[in-house]
Amino acid sequence: MDAESAKLLAAGISMGVGSIGPALGLGMLISKALESIARQPEVAGEIRTNMFIGIGVTEAVALYAFVIALILIFVA
């Protein structure tokens, strides 16, 4: 395998594997947030705000993988 194809393969794997954790995390985060909203609709606004903060932080993990993939393809 030459270096170029190894890079592309590594980029694909990093994106794919790196997405698993954040995907599970986002699923859990949003399901819990929705449960909380269903249980206590009166604080829905607060929960939603915190949910978005959580989404932002969790999602960043997948985006690190995305950036690593970009670096592998274009920079390395």
Binding site: G56, E59, A60, L63, Y64, F66, V67, L70
Partner: peptide, 13 residues
């Protein structure tokens, strides 16, 4: 870094 990368990567993707 995460603040910058999150926005950049989201929009780029």
């Amino acid at each position: 870094v995460s603040l910058a990368v999150r926005l950049f990567a989201n929009m780029l993707a």
